[in-house]
């Protein structure tokens, strides 16, 4: 690919970046995350420390589950602890939040 084409694509990339930033800025109001356990509001202003950890970590890679069977919650969080690199304390607070 010649330099001109490369430049054109980079320009397109910068332009789409600007569009996305504008979109983000335009949606001025805080929006709760789309998903989370049915009984929770996953905003950053969450009062429960476990809810806060859930909101900050569980939508980083994928849509977080709306509900989890308490029977499997411990197992799933062990699995996600290695992925999300959560501390033991975070895991404990999340367990209390997801399976009180």
């Amino acid at each position: 690919m010649n330099d001109q084409v490369r430049k054109r694509w980079l320009l397109a990339l910068v332009a789409s970046g600007v569009c996305i930033a504008t979109l983000v800025a335009a949606t001025g109001q805080a929006v709760p995350a789309a998903t989370g356990p049915a009984h929770a509001q996953t905003t950053a202003m969450a009062a429960d420390p476990g809810e806060k950890i859930f909101a900050a970590n569980c939508a980083r890679c994928h849509t977080p589950p709306m509900t989890l069977n308490p029977r499997v919650t411990g197992t799933i969080l062990m699995h996600m602890r290695t992925r999300a690199r959560l501390s033991r304390k975070d895991e404990k607070l999340l367990l209390q939040y997801l399976a009180p």
């Binding site: 029977r71 499997v72 919650t73 411990g74 799933i76 062990m78 404990k92 399976a99």
Partner: peptide
Amino acid sequence: QDDLRAHTTAGYVPVIS
């Protein structure tokens, strides 16, 4: 070991996901 179960109902059964 932390006794996590003391504070939660979370179970640790094997899972197929």
